[in-house]
Nucleic acid binder design. Structure first.
Lengths: 189, 189
DNA sequence: GCGTTCATGTAATATGTTACATGATTTC
DNA sequence: GAAATCATGTAACATATTACATGAACGC
């Protein structure tokens, strides 16, 4: 069960509602984990039942009411234990890579389109993460911030997200170029 | 169902047994997908039942007998359809990132050890992938190979694997450095 | 004789995805 | 008036992980 720890880690920076969490774990951000809203609502219910988080109702006038959750002492202990335990290796599972693996045996036109789309998506994330990093470190240099900042966890994970998306973008672009070059050079199949 | 397509893509380069496939999809390689042996045996059975792959018994003297599988025409069509369909985005899900996200709230000693281990693991993969790439392109330059090589799919995915592991390694090392620096600078908590 | 590699699976459990469901408010 | 955002879930289905299970042969 790793989602629970991701949720606990996300709640460290302050109370959040299920809806807010869902946004943080969704496409736009998700710089250290990804999960869907349904998963999160279910996990929040479980975590609360086990006493690892505590929720409080917030009545709103203009919007539907919501519940904000925060990590309890028991939750922090759980996180601590998780951090100390051996880490499972993480692995690549990407449909796009599967398609490229088969590139010599399938038509490449659609593949090129999908790679271009992914490159654009990755670029958007690069921009977003770069902006987030600037916001977090404020007017300090990166070195300064990492040395003396009060909360560097999210900064470090965001750095990984940034590098990952840069890698994604670069690879997609180079792969498109390679496939296009072959389309051009080769006779019609 | 994405595993089935990964299996089909892996079988494009020639017949493989479940055991050989399992090795390819395991820790050591897995440059475009990861799966455990149990999953693969189950998927191979399903794929054969559906006629997307064909297996043949190979009797061995010195070793237990095995079954080699190859992609059928129907299997190739399935792969073709998969490649043409829209690609689901892929997301980061990494326990180590969750732990780093929580770094300011947990003890960092164990975390540093795990990051170092991951860095070493990533370096080993970098070496492996670099070697695989050299083997694939032979004495040609990369550009030459990509332009005229007969099978570039595995080369391209391996390039992504290489870059990914380099990114992993670099990030782990920098993160270790940042966490160590804070341990040194800061008073004991 | 003991551990590793080759070779293949089943069964139980955990986790994740997809589809369905509801209802208010705000912005175009 | 329609679409997007806020807000929260349930139920059915698909997929993945973990534990269990077996057995031969090879190298030390």
């Amino acid at each position: 069960m790793a989602l629970r720890h991701a949720v606990l880690a996300a709640l460290l920076d302050g109370e959040l509602s299920g809806y807010q969490l869902a946004k943080a774990f969704d496409l736009g951000v998700a710089n250290f984990w990804y999960a869907q809203p349904q998963q999160l609502y279910a996990e929040l219910a479980r975590l609360e039942k086990e006493g690892l988080i505590a929720g409080r109702e917030v009545v709103q006038e203009t919007r539907p009411n919501k519940r904000l959750f925060q990590v309890t002492d028991a939750g922090l202990e759980e996180l601590q234990a998780f951090a100390a335990a051996p880490t499972k290796p993480s692995f690549i599972r990407d449909d796009l890579l599967v398609k490229v693996q088969a590139a010599d045996h399938v038509t490449t036109a659609a593949l090129i389109a999908q790679l271009s789309e992914r490159a654009a998506f990755a670029q958007a994330k690069v921009d977003l993460f770069a902006k987030l990093l600037r916001t977090m470190r404020g007017d300090r240099t990166e070195e300064e911030f990492l040395r003396h900042g009060s909360r560097i966890g999210p900064y470090l994970t965001c750095q990984r997200g940034l590098a990952f998306e840069q890698g994604n973008r670069d690879w997609c672009e180079r792969t498109v170029a390679a496939l296009r070059e072959r389309q051009r050079t080769r006779a019609r199949r």
